[in-house]
Design a protein around this nucleic acid. Structure first.
Length: 598
DNA sequence: GTAGGGTTAG
């Protein structure tokens, strides 16, 4: 700031002997507040050298720190390399810089170099080195670093241990993380929060809720950060009751009036399929940021309330809130879920032509457009659209087209797309399953077997489908053909009665069900005991009639289950809300909110 | 003189 407005003042500073501010202090202040361009920083550096102050490590450190914060890592590295015997904290600063700029390999190599030269790392070094290891694709470096940590006797340093825990959860090593946590000397609120947050972020939501519970038993008061992670876990699991209880805790602790907490709560309502509660909260929030708006828009989109999503988007712009690229993902997926091709094009073109750097279409937006075009039957157009992409299409983009080929039974294009897709992402089970479903739908069982064989050879395993229902603040999980639930006998009995009833009003099981990008449950399990059917039967037995039955599914639902749910909602007069992998289906009186377009 | 945790999307 100072530099921009009064450059002359700045340049004269170090030379002004008479100045009341000593030069070193002046530099320090300046560099601390400095957020200048690399050019300006270079000038400052040059000035430091000419005034003979370069030996002052303190100033160099500020400069180095500023460079790393601004992302000018190559210049920071150059500065570092010019130093004579940099001390440990300077090494730490450089490593920290690489980690903050998500350059874990560079960070790790600086750490290695440190070792080779014989500079002893300290307790400030490891939090960052471990964080770098957590950003690497494989765990082995992290394991080696853990050994060093033990060797230097730093394993009980709270922050080092916290970072190690985070690293292990990221690599799915929950057991190791829990061991480290359990044997921690002081488990403060931040350590709890770190573990809970990383569990949520890596798909261990029920583990996160378990920890949240344990935390209160241990007498540690949650803060806003804890609540945000807990609410996020509830959203992931789709548990509205526990979500409300969590919010109750926040209110009791007086940490509910925080925009991040409110956004997390908003998201929780959305992910539980309750747009009414979300809207009520949204409307009474004293402040809303772009995340609040985007969450609400996306919420309408995935719940099939397309008009509301688009209306909210224009209200957002009228109120002068700048949409970001996530907001546009919400808008485009609203169009996609409703088959609004023209509107989708209009929004997409607006993004591309806006001139705003932060809303230039990204791969996700392209995938959304491909999905929209493909789902609506414009397969050729979708393919050409990908071919014209200015950025390299990724698996998500090709996957969207493959999914569309499955819906429209286009074997030829499907095969072609699969070839391209498996070049980019050979090991993703769901894409192989879609391809096998494409063949299955047209009766090419020879090819189906080939795909299965290929999967077996590659060791690609499909994910088992399951559905869950929350009841009395507890989860009930069902797999296809599952008989492990204590109420199993009643559930199957109920299911039988339901099938008889709906058959009498026209339900015909679609045994040759068309698969969308669904991964079917085990082959031997008949269609009548798909996990969502069991979950619905369970819900009908247990959930009070005034409440809807909320079923959460990890994969997409199949045609037959979709049809089944419509009929059941009709004869039982119950609302069934089903969340599949990418959207909601609200079944009321025989009709689904998705209008059978998904 | 430096250190650990949070919301949308993927």
């Amino acid at each position: 700031m100072l530099f921009k407005t009064h450059p002359s003042k700045f340049y004269s500073l170090p030379h002004t002997q008479k100045s009341s501010i000593p030069p070193i202090q002046a530099f320090t202040t300046l560099l601390k507040s400095c957020s200048s361009s690399p050019y300006q920083l270079k000038q400052i550096h040059a000035l430091l050298l000419t005034t003979g102050l370069s030996i002052k490590n303190r100033l160099i450190t500020h400069l180095l720190t500023n460079l790393t914060l601004l992302g000018h890592m190559s210049y920071a590295r150059q500065l570092f390399d010019e130093m004579h015997k940099p001390r440990t904290f300077l090494w730490n600063t450089l490593i920290k810089g690489y980690v903050k700029n998500e350059l874990p390999i560079e960070a790790a190599s600086v750490y290695r170099q440190m070792h080779l030269i014989g500079v002893r790392p300290d307790s400030f070094t490891y939090p960052f080195v471990v964080k770098a290891c957590a950003q690497l694709p494989e765990l082995w470096a992290g394991g080696a670093v853990h050994v060093h940590v033990v060797k230097y006797g730093l394993e009980f340093v709270s922050m080092v241990r916290t970072e190690l825990m985070i690293m292990y959860v990221k690599f799915g090593e929950m057991g190791l993380a829990e061991f480290l946590f359990g044997s921690m000397v002081e488990r403060d609120v931040v350590a709890w929060n770190a573990l809970i947050a990383v569990c949520v972020q890596n798909g261990f939501a029920s583990k996160a809720l378990g920890l949240f519970h344990q935390m209160s038993l241990a007498g540690i008061k949650p803060d806003a950060v804890t609540i945000v992670s807990a609410l996020s876990a509830c959203g992931q699991l789709g548990c509205l009751e526990i979500g409300e209880e969590t919010y109750g805790v926040a209110r009791k602790e007086g940490i509910d009036c925080n925009i991040i907490v409110e956004n997390a709560r908003l998201d929780m309502y959305i992910k539980c399929g309750n747009t009414d509660m979300a809207r009520t909260l949204f409307n009474k929030m004293p402040q809303r940021n772009v995340i609040s708006w985007s969450t609400m828009i996306l919420g309408y989109a995935i719940n099939g309330e397309t008009e509301k999503a688009l209306a909210l988007f224009s209200r957002m712009k009228n109120e002068g809130v700048q949409p970001n690229y996530v907001t546009y993902l919400g808008v485009l997926s609203a169009c996609s879920h409703a088959g609004l091709v023209n509107e989708g094009w209009a929004y997409f073109n607006h993004m591309a032509q806006s001139g705003h750097k932060n809303i230039q279409p990204r791969k996700e937006h392209y995938a959304c457009m491909v999905d929209l075009l493909g789902r609506s039957g414009h397969l050729e157009e979708a393919y050409n659209f990908i071919k014209r992409m200015p950025i390299e299409p990724d698996a998500g983009v090709w996957g969207a087209l493959l999914g569309a080929c499955a819906i429209h039974h286009d074997v030829k294009l499907g095969q072609h797309v699969a070839d391209l897709l498996f070049e980019v992402a050979p090991d993703i089970a769901s894409y192989h399953v879609i391809m096998s479903n494409i063949y299955a739908a047209v009766g090419r069982w020879d090819f189906v077997d080939k795909v299965r064989l290929k999967m077996r050879k590659k060791g690609v395993k499909k994910v088992a489908g399951y559905s869950s229902v929350e009841f009395n603040s507890e989860f009930h999980f069902f797999y296809g053909g599952d008989r492990s639930h204590p109420q199993s006998a009643y559930i199957y009995e109920k299911l039988e009665v339901l099938l008889k009833q709906i058959k009498s009003i026209g339900y015909i099981p679609k045994t040759s069900s068309v698969f969308h990008d669904v991964e079917t449950e085990e082959k031997e399990v008949t269609i009548s005991t798909h996990s969502e059917k069991l979950a619905i039967a369970f819900g009908l037995i247990n959930v009070r009639p005034e409440y809807p039955i909320r079923v959460m599914k990890n994969l997409r639902t199949c045609d037959d289950c979709h049809n089944f749910s419509k009929f059941v909602s009709k004869i039982t007069m119950r609302e069934i809300i089903m969340r599949d992998k990418i959207r909601f289906h609200h079944f009321r009186n025989g009709v689904c909110s998705c209008k059978d377009f998904w």
